[in-house]
Amino acid sequence: MILDRRQLLGASGAFLALAACGKGAGASGVLRVGSQKGGTKALLLASGALEGPRYTVEWSEFPAAQNLLEALGSGAVDLGLIGDAPFQFAYQSGSPIKAVAVQSVPDPQEGTLSILVAKGSPLQSLQDLIGKKVATTHGSIGHYLVLRALAANGLKADAVKVVFLSPSDSRAALQTGAVDAWSVWAPYTVAALAEGARIVVDGRSYSQGNSFDVANEQAIADKRPLLQDFLAREARAMEWSQGHTAEFAKVLARETGLPEAIALGTVQRARRARTPIDDALIKDQQVIFDTFRNAGEFKGNRPIAQAFQPIG
Rank of each mutant, 00 (worst) to 15 (best):
K223E: 02
V200L: 09
G209M: 11
Q218C: 00
S241A: 14
D202S: 13
G243E: 14
R224V: 01
S241Y: 01
T245W: 01
I199D: 07
N210A: 04
L231Q: 04
M238F: 09
A237Q: 10
A246N: 12
N216A: 06
Q242K: 15
S207M: 14
A219C: 06
Q228W: 03
G203T: 10
V201M: 09
G243V: 08
R204C: 04
P225V: 07
V201N: 05
P225L: 11
S241N: 08
S205Q: 07
R224L: 09
R233M: 06
G203L: 05
I199K: 06
I199G: 05
R224I: 01
Q228T: 13
W240S: 06
E247A: 10
R224Y: 02
R233D: 05
E234M: 04
Q242I: 13
Q208A: 12
E217F: 00
W240L: 08
R224F: 01
R224D: 11
G243F: 08
M238A: 14
D222W: 01
A235E: 15
A235R: 14
E217C: 07
K223A: 02
L226N: 07
E217V: 14
D202R: 13
A237H: 05
N210D: 11
A237E: 10
Y206G: 01
D222P: 01
G203M: 05
D213K: 12
T245P: 01
R233P: 04
D229Q: 04
G243N: 15
H244R: 14
Q242E: 14
Q228A: 10
A215N: 06
L226T: 12
F212K: 09
A232N: 04
F230S: 05
A232H: 05
L226Q: 11
D229I: 08
E217S: 10
S211I: 00
A246P: 05
M238D: 14
N210G: 01
I220V: 13
D222S: 12
F230K: 04
E239F: 00
D229M: 03
Q208T: 08
A235G: 14
F212S: 09
D222N: 12
V214Y: 01
I220N: 04
Q218I: 04
E234C: 02
Q218N: 09
A246V: 13
E217D: 12
R236G: 12
H244C: 10
R204K: 13
Q242L: 13
W240Y: 08
R224N: 10
A235Y: 08
Q208M: 09
A219G: 08
G243S: 15
E217T: 15
F212W: 06
